[in-house]
Every structure is written in C-alpha cells, then in structure tokens.
C-alpha cells in the first residue's frame, strides 16, 4: 500500500514537472494541452479548494493536465477579467461566485458579466446566522428578542460591501425585523477568528468556514437561509421553519469566456458535470460543508440572471451601485 503511494506520488510529480512541455504536442483534438482553471481568490480559500478538487477530477475525466491559477486582486475583478479576456478556446475556465455579481455593479472598471459564459453550476452556499456560544444565546427567538431590546448589543462580523456575508448581513436582519452593527473583516477566515476571540458576537457567514466550530459547539448556528436544512447540520432549522421568510445564498459556478466553439463547450460542460458528480468530489465537498446542486450550462445561466436580480436592489438600497452602472 505504502509503496504504491510513493509510486503514484512520483508519477504525479513527474506529470507536474512535464507540464510546461505538453503544450508543444498540441494538435486538433480537444483537449490537447492543459486546461487552466482560474481562481480569483488566493490559495487556501473556499473557491481555491473547489478549483483544485474539480481540477483533480477533471484531469482524469478529460485525460489532460489541469492547472489552477490564482489570479487575485481588486476584490476578485482581476481574475474575472482574466477569464473574460482569455482566448475562448476552452483552455481557460474559472470559478466564480456572488462577489463578481456585486463588483459588476459597484465598480465601473470591473468586467461586466456578459463577457462570461456559465458552463456548470456547482453548489449553493446558503446564508446563515451564527452566534458565539459564549453569549449563552442558542435560539433565533432569544436572539431576536435581545436585538430588539438593544440593537447595538451584539456586533456582527461580515465581509466588506459586496462580499457574500455582507449581502447576508443586509438580507437576514431585514427579514428578522432587527438592526445590526456590522463590522467588516477582509475575508471569512478573519471573521471566524473574530467570532472565536469574541471581538464580534454574531456572524453571517456561509456554513463551510464555521462547520467544524458549530459541530464542536463553540458557535451556535441560529438559522439557515435556504429552503431545506443544511445537510451537514440537520439539527439547525431554516429561517422559514422559524417563521421568517428569507432565502439567500451565494453560489459557485464554473464559467468560461464567451465564444467557445460549440463542440468544445459541450465537452467542457459534460466534463465539469462529471467532475462535480464524481465520487471523490462529492465526498470532499460534503465534508467541507458545501451544498452541491450540479446543473448544466442553461440552468447555470438562469441562476446567474436570478442572482443579478437579487443583488442589484440590495446594493442600490445600500447606495453602493456606481452612478454609471445604475439601471434606468
């Protein structure tokens, strides 16, 4: 067993070393060279994990090397631009989420989403409300009562404007009829740390970054903003079950630049769907708290359009839509 491991590892290493040379053997059949998956966030984050896991499966399915490129900066816009401007030859695809939608309204230099062609929808990332166990509050009812009494009593940690936990922090209190003090943190990991060290008492993060802490009991999840309960936290009720009609989620989808030849696009779509449905990916995604909902290109495009309709009014209400990008 161990010997085999070493052998496979050596083989992997050899493949890795040979990557730069494979381009030389390009011929007509797709794929004939490595496929690059662009991840717009740094290595180690949620999107990075998705990109690398899918890349791992895709390389077996498509029988070619898959390379993950972290093209980061400017709130994800640099990477999205990288995808949108890439040659539409099927060798550059990328992972995107809600943040790109927000940026397309907030930032006049961000690429507009019509340059992106959704290939496959991977997962929902439902919004949720968490509270530190140290507060002693463990039900939504108690939280709402506490917040009505003193709206500034519990501080919430979330992303800066446009990030998913910022959007959740706008939508969830609206439905609960409460107000909250929002403290911005640059990313989910610092928000989790702030929740654990007690700088903030609540957070509106999606489930994956807090899953283990919720299972350990250091963080209580008060509600999940989805139609059904979260598969990894079956004991946590949805907001709907508790009488508050709020469903809001981030998403993960695979996109490509517009204009890929139809046959290559079809190959990519089916390859990606096979990767998302593969045993290895499903198991790893489940462990990390993702809610998989694999959908093809047409459905992914519909989901994206729906998210745009959800996010635009939110950002407009918050005064965040850039004047040039305002809809009439």
């Amino acid at each position: 067993m161990k010997k085999r491991n070493l052998f496979t590892s050596a083989l992997c290493l050899a493949t890795f070393a040979a990557l730069p040379f494979q381009a030389a053997f390009a011929d007509d059949a797709y794929p004939s060279k490595p496929i690059h998956i662009t991840v717009v966030w740094p290595a180690g984050g949620g999107h990075d994990l998705v990109g690398r896991l899918i890349g791992h499966e895709l390389s077996t399915i498509m029988d070619t090397a898959v390379v993950v490129d972290n093209v980061t900066g400017a709130g994800g816009s640099t990477g999205i631009r990288h995808i949108a401007k890439a040659d539409p030859d099927g060798y550059t695809i990328g992972v995107m989420g809600l943040h790109a939608v927000s940026q397309s309204y907030m930032n006049t230099s961000a690429p507009q989403l019509d340059g992106l062609d959704p290939l496959a929808y991977v997962s929902d990332e439902p919004g949720a409300l968490q509270i530190s166990a140290d507060t002693g509050i463990d039900t939504l009812e108690a939280y709402v009562a506490a917040m009505k009494e003193d709206p500034m009593g519990l501080m919430n940690g979330n992303d800066p404007q446009g990030g998913n936990s910022f959007v959740f922090a706008e939508v969830i209190p609206q439905a609960l009829g409460t107000d909250m003090m929002r403290l911005p943190y640059p990313g989910h990991a610092p928000t989790v740390t702030a929740l654990l060290t007690g700088e903030v008492q609540t957070a509106t993060l999606p489930i994956p970054p807090i899953l283990e802490h919720a299972l350990a009991g250091t963080i209580n999840v008060l509600g999940v903003a989805s139609e059904t309960r979260h598969p990894q936290l079956p004991d946590v009720p949805t907001f709907k079950e508790q009488g508050y009609d709020v469903v809001v989620n981030d998403f993960v989808m695979m996109v490509a630049p517009v204009g890929i030849p139809t046959d290559i696009r079809a190959k990519l779509e089916s390859g990606l769907l096979a990767a998302v449905n593969s045993e290895g990916f499903v198991a790893a995604a489940k462990k990390s708290g993702m809610v998989l909902r694999p959908l093809g290109a047409t459905d992914a495009a519909a989901e994206l359009a729906m998210q745009q309709e959800l996010v635009y009014p939110l950002l407009e209400n918050a005064g965040l839509v850039a004047p040039e990008l305002k809809r009439d």
Binding site: E212, A284, S288
Partner: peptide
C-alpha cells in the same frame, strides 16, 4: 485545505 482534501476538517475537535 490539504487536511480537508483528506477528509480531516481542522477544528477544535
């Protein structure tokens, strides 16, 4: 992230 790939999600437990 690497731990998570091996099905071991780091957390207090």
């Amino acid at each position: 992230g690497a731990l998570m790939l091996h099905g071991l999600t780091p957390g207090p437990l």
